[in-house]
């Protein structure tokens, strides 16, 4: 018998029990105590938020006429982050394979030819202009107890490495994405989930807006692709290919 139940049963079996009105009160007390104990015990267990296949809308952009492949790290299939708020509850966020889904949708919309290759595949054997390797550098979130607001905020720091068709790394671009959501509107779990989705959408927007400028990926277009495909109107060409583009400063907690 769990401790909580044992405690309640001991109370119910006390001297008040079995005395008409006293018995009724005792039953009510039992129910209230059980509810409070269950709530407390559930609270101590922490919250777990799961993102189930969130998707981004189809971007309104012109595609870059390039053949690109992406290789995802293992963490893109099952990313779980835990955060213990000091003296408070533990929060766990399970992104599952949502990062894989996000980047596949995004790159599929950005490039005219796109494929996903598995780890261990030699990209130099493939007829591609560029290989993209995204990864997660850091994941953080804050809950209302920490920020002293009613907001949940999520920060995701991605790193995007780009290789040319010979396998030479030409860009290493860190990006910081941010999303926040008010708890009063969606409730705790839903608010954290929404903040995570907003952070992923923020990353997608940032990549669409600045990827070519920061990494010069369009310069990797091969002669073959240039002659076969129409010219791009999506993003301007950048001056230099090799880059370690400066990271954007994300908004701080509570902002």
């Amino acid at each position: 018998m769990p401790f909580a139940q044992a405690l309640i049963h001991r109370q119910a079996g006390g001297p008040i029990a079995g005395r008409g009105l006293g018995n009724l009160k005792s039953k009510w007390l039992e129910r209230i105590s059980a509810t409070v104990l269950v709530a407390v015990l559930c609270g101590c267990g922490g919250s777990r938020v799961t993102l189930k296949n969130p998707s981004i809308p189809k971007p309104l952009i012109a595609q870059l006429p390039m053949s690109v492949a992406a290789r995802y790290p293992a963490e893109f299939d099952n990313f779980v982050h835990e955060e213990q708020v000091i003296g408070k509850e533990k929060w766990t966020i399970d992104l599952g394979s949502s990062n894989r889904l996000l980047f596949t949708q995004l790159f599929g919309a950005m490039f005219t030819e796109f494929m996903v290759i598995e780890e261990g595949t030699d990209a130099r054997d493939l007829p591609i202009d560029a290989l993209i390797e995204p990864s997660i550098d850091a994941f953080e979130f804050s809950v209302p107890n920490q920020s002293q607001t009613d907001e949940f905020a999520v920060w995701i720091r991605y790193r995007i490495k780009i290789f040319d068709s010979d396998g030479v790394q030409v860009a290493n671009w860190p990006i910081a994405a941010y999303g926040k959501s008010q708890s009063s509107t969606f409730g705790g779990d839903a608010a954290l989930r929404k903040a995570a989705i907003l952070a992923m959408r923020d990353a997608a927007a940032l990549i669409i807006m600045q990827m070519d400028k920061s990494t010069g990926i369009s310069k990797l277009r091969s002669t073959n692709t240039r002659s076969n495909l129409a010219p791009s109107t999506a993003m301007p060409d950048s001056e230099s290919i090799q880059t370690t583009a400066a990271e954007e400063i994300p908004d701080g907690p509570g902002q």
Partner: peptide, 12 residues
């Protein structure tokens, strides 16, 4: 916002 993604995101 979804119909015009990504042009009306908080950042853009």
């Amino acid at each position: 916002v979804d119909a015009l993604f990504p042009w009306f995101e908080p950042r853009t």
